[in-house]
Amino acid sequence: MTAFTLRKKLFNLRELVLLQKICATNEGADILREAISVFAGNGVMEEFSSLPKIFRDVVVNEQWERHRNFLLTQIYRDIQRVSGWYSPAAFVASVLDGASQKEIKKFNEQLEDLLQRPVIGEVGEASIDAAIEWDPFLHFLF
């Protein structure tokens, strides 16, 4: 494996870890809400269930691992930062290795569009719209 290939693999790993943190805490909270609702009133009573404590731990973990907006912004900056030596299209193709060419093309087009729009910087209607699209894009990519 060349140093350049290793560099790309390490970049993929970094971005996938950041995505995992976002998705795991988000899905964890959703699953726990559903589990608590199964037990109705007992689901919120710590004398009956450990679910309330686990739910609090998920919320704390989300903050501990950095807030999702911070992580989303970091991924955006990372992809832009390396685009000179690792194109967004190559990144998508690499992390979606084994997916259909149609799926890879769809994600490439979405990523290219989002990278052309101001997700960070001055706050305005365009940046807010792009940021709103950035979150679900990364969730589906993961």
Rank of each mutant, 00 (worst) to 15 (best):
W85F: 08
R81M: 11
A90H: 15
R7I: 06
R68H: 02
K53G: 02
D129F: 05
F70Q: 15
F140G: 04
Q110P: 07
D113C: 02
F142Y: 13
I120P: 08
R68Q: 03
A99C: 08
L6N: 07
F39P: 00
D57H: 00
V95Q: 09
I128W: 12
K102M: 08
Q63G: 11
R56W: 03
I132W: 15
W64G: 11
G28P: 02
I120K: 14
Q20V: 02
S127H: 10
D135L: 08
L115H: 07
F142T: 01
L114N: 14
N26H: 04
G43H: 02
R81H: 13
P118N: 02
L18C: 06
E103I: 01
W85E: 10
V123C: 13
D113Q: 09
S37G: 03
R14G: 04
W85P: 08
D97N: 15
A90Y: 12
Q20D: 05
R56G: 01
F39W: 04
G98P: 12
V38A: 05
L114P: 11
E27S: 02
L19P: 03
S127F: 11
S50M: 09
A130G: 12
V58M: 01
G41P: 00
E62K: 07
S37W: 03
L72N: 06
E46M: 11
V92R: 09
K102T: 11
E103V: 06
D57N: 02
